[in-house]
Design a protein around this nucleic acid. Structure first.
Lengths: 232, 232
DNA sequence: ATCCGTTCTTGATTATTATCAACTCCAAGG
DNA sequence: CCTTGGAGTTGATAATAATCAAGAACGGAT
């Protein structure tokens, strides 16, 4: 690993509270790699050999059963994925696919488990990363069980708008069929949901969304920090 | 806290790898309490003041939005709940209700966060507990997004049968409406789902379930370790 | 036992969402 | 420029599940 890369990585939230020896141990077999879109990084059911951290880009976590498939989450920097499988030395529950060209930090799993047992700062960082991951899935489960697909879409739009500065005009950062899977609906249902939102003065042109009547959308979405705030 | 209680608690998976000083710190403000059914232990949105561990009994974690409510999980011994909120010093995302008379260990939150930073063994135990919790919700999200309600019920039956020794006859350990919420369906839909399962030779009498044709049920359920095995 | 409140079931209807099929649109490659 | 394949949309239909209403069954209390 190049020195400047090491510089960057050492400041990563996961490693910032590490002891020096832990850092050496962790970075020994670690590397940073660029991946093009559509690369498959993990497959569900495989052994957890690496912990992945997104330095730039976006990763889709997907899961399947029989012939069905769905998106569990979309991960961006600086977050990690499949921490839980690594911490427990178990099988991946999800497949990870690169959505857009991404830089990924890969840390071998065995040293991570070893480092946790000796370095409280690192173990705490892992615990906190996992706590965030837990809260995100728990929120997603609430989103899924408590809302209809139209409500989920409305909330996604509200959330995405806040994320992009609240200009009430933004683009959907990935394919609509991935958004559909993310929201737990068929692509056709997403199309129709967008059509329904016209009644609420939401205009769609390709990937561009313009919210003309913010109050109307927010009334439909009824966002709740306990479901929609990632950092509450 | 009584000496025999302390004896018992010190062997809890969360505390077994603690240093002696950490243990003292953690147990200072800790106590064990019995709660009757229907006690509300936490309310979503409240500050995380305690970490709860179930010593015996069963706890329901529920979440709500507008006037809708759903069950996120049912927790039994020796597991903890709301670890993530405690570790991050955030708000509870779920309400916890006592399902059946239960003994609960309550550990004040602040010492836990403090102990994590100094005791790698404890921090690791917390991380592992959280990793398990993460994997359970992730599995539940897969269950929810990939299966119909009939399939979820069939899998719950298969799972419950294994849990109770595989005798193909067992009882449902809580009210059917809680099972319905757990499975993400209306109580009426659960009734109808049970009626549908008669075609698969599953007989219901009150809370007692008898599976006459195991192969038929398993073919419908198609259980998958990556969704249904809690310890994979 | 009888009463009462709740849970559970069943029926009728509606709402929500998936599926299948056809068609448009657009971009990449020849 | 045309072709081609995938993404996205729209329509028709079916599957799935929620809601509302009424009755049955159950569990505690008296």
């Amino acid at each position: 690993m190049r020195a400047e890369e090491r510089e960057e990585i050492v400041r990563h939230p996961l490693l910032a509270a590490c002891q020096a020896e832990t850092l050496d141990l962790l970075l020994q077999g670690a590397f940073v790699q660029r991946f093009p879109a559509h690369t498959q990084l993990t497959r569900e059911g495989e052994k957890a050999d690496f912990l992945y951290a997104v330095l730039s880009g976006a990763i889709e976590l997907a899961a399947s059963w029989l012939d069905r498939e769905t998106t569990i989450a979309v991960i961006g920097p600086p977050h990690t994925f499949i921490v839980a499988a690594v911490a427990l030395d178990r099988l991946y529950l999800q497949s990870a696919r690169v959505l857009e060209p991404s830089r990924i930090l890969m840390l071998p799993a065995a040293p991570i488990r070893k480092a946790m047992r000796t370095d409280a700062g690192f173990a705490t960082a892992i615990a906190e990363e996992m706590a965030n991951a837990y809260r995100n899935v728990a929120q997603e489960l609430k989103n899924q069980k408590l809302r209809t697909s139209l409500e989920r879409l409305a909330n996604w739009l509200v959330h995405r708008d806040k994320e992009t500065g609240g200009g009430h005009r933004f683009i959907i950062p990935f394919e609509k069929k991935i958004l559909a899977a993310r929201l737990g609906m068929a692509p056709e249902a997403l199309s129709r949901a967008f059509a329904t939102l016209v009644k609420y003065d939401v205009r769609i042109d390709g990937a561009t969304v313009v919210v003309k009547d913010w109050a109307a959308l927010e009334k439909l979405a009824h966002p709740d920090p306990l479901i929609d705030d990632e950092t509450i």
